[in-house]
């Protein structure tokens, strides 16, 4: 990850979009300060209200994690402890951040399970993760993350492993919870459909950098960066018919071969002249709350195909 900056406001859903290896999961982990400290170098600041998360020590961070900052992980089967009941795993959160009595914690857990739409909370409380369906597991994962009414939720591919109908339910659930608690949500996903469905703002990442960001309505209507435009043209959807999809030339550079200078997307749009790229590409505000990296977007066109809008 290199030079990534963005803000999340109260009651807002910011989607971080990119393909595997673009650094979006590393971003999520570093916000939660869950990355391997020995193998990671972090520069810059992650500000939450008055504190800088990067500067906090482990004990201070533990006070925020699970209380102010909640996280929802992707694969809910591996992300839950297989030997612990679902109820206990939710309660654990309350153990460390509240001084409720045992009884009150249990009652609160039931309430949480009911809140995320689990039909029989008393029953599910005693169940183990493997006994639940994928959708139900993801719901209990959400109830775990919101147990202490966090102000920020980071959801890392929360619906990727789920069926479409369940995905729609989970997204609606997140929205409805937000309506009540006004939390800010960072939604990490590779699915532009999900972004269009739920997010307010979008951050598009490529090879560890933000290449475009702004409001969802604006960027979906008028994407500027070549990567964003290419991505949108490679999605098969109801609207595409059966024409060939757009294929981005080449492949995402691996971390070790990441170009340190110049536009990181340059090699994948080789037909665009070299001099249209900046030497050290910066984010430019092209409209209010719409940022694009590098100047190559001004000259970008699709080779031999009509751009789908």
């Amino acid at each position: 990850m290199d030079n990534v900056s963005f803000t999340v406001n109260e009651n807002e859903i910011v989607a971080v979009v990119g393909e595997s290896g673009c650094g979006k999961s590393a971003l999520a982990l570093s916000i939660m300060q869950l990355h391997n400290k020995q193998r990671t170098k972090i520069e810059g600041a992650i500000r939450y209200r008055d504190s800088d998360l990067v500067a906090l020590n482990e004990a201070q961070m533990n006070k925020l994690r699970g209380k102010d900052l909640g996280m929802i992980f992707q694969e809910s089967l591996t992300a839950l402890n297989p030997l612990m009941t679902v109820g206990r795993q939710i309660e654990e959160n309350l153990d460390y951040h509240t001084d409720l009595t045992k009884k009150a914690k249990k009652a609160r857990t039931m309430e949480l399970l009911a809140k995320v739409g689990i039909p029989l909370p008393e029953f599910t409380y005693k169940q183990y993760p493997h006994e639940l369906s994928g959708g139900m597991r993801q719901r209990s994962m959400i109830s775990m993350a919101i147990a202490c009414n966090p102000s920020v939720i980071i959801a890392d591919e929360p619906t990727t492993a789920l069926d479409v109908t369940i995905q729609a339910q989970i997204l609606d659930l997140l929205k409805s919870i937000q309506k009540k608690t006004h939390m800010g949500i960072i939604l990490i996903t590779h699915d532009l459909g999900v972004v269009a469905e739920i997010a307010d703002r979008i951050v598009v990442m490529y090879a560890g950098q933000v290449v475009e960001m702004g409001t969802v309505l604006r960027i979906f209507k008028n994407p500027r960066h070549p990567y964003t435009r290419s991505l949108m043209n490679s999605i098969p959807s109801a609207a595409t018919g059966q024409d060939r999809l757009h294929v981005i030339e080449g492949a995402v550079p691996s971390i070790t071969r990441m170009p340190r200078q110049g536009c990181r997307f340059k090699d994948r749009i080789s037909w665009i002249p070299d001099n249209t790229h900046e030497n050290s590409p910066e984010l430019h505000e092209v409209a209010s709350d719409h940022w694009v990296r590098c100047s190559c977007y001004k000259h970008f066109y699709f080779q031999g195909r009509k751009e789908k809008r």
Partner: peptide
Amino acid sequence: KRLIAAIPDIRPETRREKE
């Protein structure tokens, strides 16, 4: 019908209607 309605739509402006 339900399956089709659940497909996320790439056009954000339709989201209210879809919901």
